[in-house]
C-alpha cells in the first residue's frame, strides 16, 4: 500500500517536472528568437532604423495617417502614409482596397521600397483594432498619435 502511494507520488513529480521544463523551454526559445522572426511586419521606425534597402521585399504595418490618403489621376492608384507615431512611410498602391481600409486605422502592406524611398505595395490588408461599437459612437482611441496610450507607447519605445 505504501509502495503504491510512493509510486503515484513519483509519477506526479516526474510528470509535473517534465511538463514545467517543457513549457519553460519553449517559452524561452520563443523569447530568444525575439519578436522579430515571428512578427508579421515591420513598422516605419523599424524600416528607418534598419535602413532597409530598395527592392527588398517585406511587410510594412502601421496606422494610415489621417489626411494622408489621396487617389492619383488614373483613379486606380492610391497614396497614403503609414505611421507608427515615431516615423512615417509613404506608400503607393494600385488595386482594390479592403472594406475596412480607413484613415486612422491599421494596415499591413506587402511590397518593396523604390529608389525614391516610397513603399510600393502589391497587397494591402486592413488591420482592425479591438474596439466594437454601434455606428455614431466613437471610440476613445480616435485621434491617432494623440491618444495617451500611443504617447505612452512612443515614450516607452524611445526610452528602450
Amino acid at each position: 500500500m505504501a509502495g503504491l502511494k510512493t509510486r503515484k507520488k513519483q509519477r506526479l513529480v516526474v510528470v509535473s517536472v517534465a511538463l514545467t521544463s517543457l513549457v519553460g523551454a519553449t517559452l524561452l526559445i520563443l523569447f530568444a528568437l525575439g519578436g522579430d522572426s515571428l512578427s508579421l511586419f515591420l513598422q516605419p521606425s523599424d524600416v528607418k532604423e534598419r535602413q532597409v534597402e530598395a527592392g527588398q521585399h517585406f511587410r510594412l504595418g502601421g496606422l494610415v495617417e489621417t489626411g494622408s490618403f489621396s487617389r492619383l489621376d488614373d483613379g486606380l492608384t492610391f497614396r497614403f502614409t503609414v505611421t507608427d507615431c515615431l516615423a512615417n512611410q509613404p506608400v503607393e498602391f494600385t488595386g482594390l482596397l479592403p472594406d475596412l481600409f480607413r484613415e486612422g486605422q491599421g494596415v499591413v502592406t506587402e511590397g518593396e521600397l523604390n529608389a525614391d524611398g516610397v513603399f510600393v505595395a502589391s497587397t494591402v490588408l486592413a488591420k482592425h483594432d479591438e474596439n466594437y461599437r454601434p455606428p455614431g459612437t466613437m471610440p476613445k482611441s480616435e485621434g491617432q498619435c494623440s491618444h495617451p496610450d500611443d504617447q505612452a507607447a512612443a515614450a516607452a519605445y524611445s526610452e528602450g
Partner: peptide, 11 residues
C-alpha cells in the same frame, strides 16, 4: 471581407 484576405501566416 474585413482584412482583405482569408488567411495570413501570423502568430
Amino acid at each position: 471581407p474585413m482584412w482583405g484576405t482569408y488567411w495570413v501566416w501570423d502568430g
